[in-house]
Design a protein around this nucleic acid. Structure first.
Length: 425
RNA sequence: GUGGGCGUAGUGUAGUUGGUUAACACGUCAGGUUGUGGCCCUGAAGAUCGAGGGUUCGAAUCCCUCCGCUCACCCCA
C-alpha cells in the first residue's frame, strides 16, 4: 500500500516552512499597515454561491470545481477562490452596518481541479484582500499599492503591472456586439485553437498568446473603448493617481493593457495583474484582481461597491530568489541524560527551562553517549548539558557551547543555567 | 481534456550492441574501549530498477499496456 499526496497538492515539510512563514507574516504585516483586518471562512460553501459569484460560464465553475454532496444531500464545493466566500460572510454578518469602507484580508487554501504544472496546483494558497463600500478610484489604487508593498517587502523586484478597465456588464454588451461584428469576417483566419475559444467565449481571445491572433486583434474594438460616463471618470482618475504613485515603487513598470480580461465574471471597471518583468514561466501572474461593484448585491446583499485582489503564495515563493528570511532551525539546549537519576533530573530541568522560553530537548537515553553528542551536533543545538550521577551528586553541571567548544561549570540552579545560556547566546 | 520530457535506496546520480551478488556520493545507523560532537577511519542497513504483461536460456536494458511525476496548451493565483 503506497499512499501519496493527492496530485496537485503539496506537503510543506519543515524545510519549507521558513519561507512559508515568512510570506505569511509579511502578508499579515502589510495588510495591517494598510488597516485591513483578517477574516477566515470555511473551506467549503454551497455550490450555488460560487456558481452565482464566479459565473456559470467560467472555466472555474464549468470544469474546475471540487463539488460533492454531503450526507444530508447538500451540494457543496471546496472554494476555488476567496472573494465569493468573503462577500458571503460580509453579508451574513451584517458588515454593511460597519463604518465604510470595510477592509478585510485572508490567507487560505483554494482548490481547483486543473492539470498541475509549474505555478499551478489543485490546492494552492492565496493571500487576498477585499475592500467594501467605497467606489472611489483611490480604492482601486489602494489595493494595488498594498499588493506592490507586499511584494516589495518580500524582496520581489522588477514587476510589471498591467491595468485595464472592462466597464460594466451593460457596456460590455455593446462592446461584445461591436467586437463580434469586427471578428466574424476574420474568424476563419484564426488558428483552430483560437477558433474554438472564440466559439465558447469571444472575449477571451483578446488575451490569446498567439501572435497571429494578436495581429488580427490590433485594430479590434476593446472593452475600454465602450465605457459609460461613470466608468470613464473612474478610469481617468485612477490612471492619474496610479501614474503619480507608481513612481514610489522602483523597478515596477505599468502598462495599460486593453486586452487584459479576467476569467471570473464578477469584475467590473478596473482590473489588474502583476507579474515578474522577466518571467519565462507560463503561469506568471502572481497577484491580480480588480473592482467588483455588483457582486455583493448579486449574491443577495445590499448594493455595495467593492474591490480586491488574490495572490498565489506558491507562485510568490517561486519568485523569491533572494533569501530574505532567517531559518530559525535550532534547539537552544539539548540535555543528555547519562543515568537513570540524571534522566529524572533532565525532565524536571527541561520543563523549567521551557517555561522560561528556552527551547530544550532531551536526548534519547537509549542511544550511546557518543550518539547523543553527535545528535546534538546534527540538530544544530547551541548548548549541551550532560546530567548523570556525577551532576546529581555534586549539584554542579557543565554547559557546553557547541560552536565555541567552551564548557562552563556552574552550581545547579535555574538562574545559573539561564544566565550562562544567555551569555552563550 | 490535449501534447512533450522523465521514472534506478531517503536525496542526487552511474549503469543500453540484454549476461551472474545493480554501482557511487551525500544522508541514516553502529563501532574506532570506559561521560564530550563536527574531521578522519571501519562497518551496517536501505532498491521487488514506477506497475503489469510479453520476447529471451537470461531483461534496469528490447516490445506492449497502465500508473506516477514534470513542463506546456487551456485557464488562472
Amino acid at each position: 500500500m503506497n499512499f501519496k499526496a493527492i496530485r496537485g497538492t503539496n506537503d510543506h515539510i519543515p524545510e519549507d516552512m521558513a519561507a512559508w512563514n515568512f510570506v505569511e507574516s509579511v502578508a499579515r504585516n502589510t495588510a495591517a499597515m494598510f488597516g485591513y483586518k483578517e477574516i477566515s471562512t470555511p473551506i467549503f460553501e454551497q455550490t450555488a454561491l460560487f456558481k452565482r459569484a464566479v459565473g456559470e460560464g467560467t472555466d472555474v465553475v464549468q470544469k474546475e470545481m471540487y463539488n460533492f454532496n454531503d450526507l444530508g444531500g447538500n451540494e457543496l464545493t471546496l472554494r476555488p477562490e476567496g472573494t465569493a466566500s468573503v462577500c458571503r460572510a460580509f453579508i451574513e454578518h451584517g458588515m454593511h452596518n460597519k463604518p465604510y469602507p470595510v477592509r478585510l484580508f485572508y490567507i487560505a487554501p483554494m482548490f481547483r481541479h486543473e492539470r498541475p504544472q509549474s505555478g499551478r496546483l489543485r490546492q494552492h494558497h492565496q493571500f487576498g484582500v477585499e475592500i467594501f463600500g467605497d467606489k472611489s478610484a483611490e480604492t482601486d489604487l489602494e489595493i494595488i499599492l498594498l499588493g506592490l508593498t507586499y511584494l516589495d517587502n518580500l524582496g520581489i523586484k522588477d514587476l510589471k503591472l498591467k491595468v485595464n478597465s472592462i466597464g460594466t456588464s451593460k457596456t460590455r454588451i455593446e462592446f461584445k456586439k461591436s467586437f463580434e461584428n469586427y471578428m466574424n469576417p476574420l474568424v476563419s483566419r484564426l488558428s483552430e485553437k483560437d477558433q474554438k475559444k472564440y466559439q465558447l467565449n469571444p472575449i477571451r481571445i483578446l488575451d490569446s498568446k498567439e501572435s497571429a491572433t494578436q495581429d488580427l486583434l490590433a485594430d479590434s474594438p476593446k472593452p475600454i473603448d465602450f465605457l459609460d460616463e461613470d466608468s470613464k471618470d473612474h478610469w481617468g482618475k485612477f490612471v492619474i493617481l496610479l501614474e503619480e504613485s507608481i513612481k514610489m515603487f522602483k523597478g515596477v513598470e505599468f502598462e495599460i493593457d486593453k486586452g487584459l480580461v479576467r476569467g471570473l465574471d464578477y469584475y467590473s471597471k478596473t482590473v489588474f495583474e502583476i507579474q515578474p518583468k522577466n518571467s519565462n514561466k507560463a503561469q506568471s501572474s502572481i497577484l491580480s484582481g480588480g473592482r467588483y461593484d455588483n457582486l455583493v448585491e448579486n449574491i443577495g446583499g445590499p448594493d455595495t461597491p467593492a474591490a480586491g485582489f488574490g495572490s498565489g503564495i506558491e507562485r510568490v515563493i517561486l519568485n523569491m530568489n533572494e533569501k530574505e528570511y532567517e531559518d530559525l532551525d535550532f534547539t537552544q539546549l539539548l540535555i543528555i541524560p547519562a543515568s537513570e537519576e540524571g534522566l529524572i533530573l533532565s525532565i524536571k530541568i527541561a520543563q523549567q527551562l521551557r517555561n522560561k522560553k528556552i527551547s530544550t530537548s532531551i536526548c534519547s537515553s537509549d542511544r550511546s553517549f557518543k550518539a547523543q553528542m553527535r545528535y546534538a551536533n546534527q540538530i544544530n543545538a547551541k548548548n549541551v548539558i550532560v546530567l548523570g550521577n556525577k551532576e546529581v551528586e555534586s549539584n554542579k553541571i557543565s554547559i557546553k557551547n557547541l560552536s565555541s567548544k567552551i564548557e562552563k561549570t556552574i552550581d545547579l540552579t535555574l538562574e545559573n543555567i539561564l544566565s550562562t545560556l544567555d551569555s552563550n547566546g
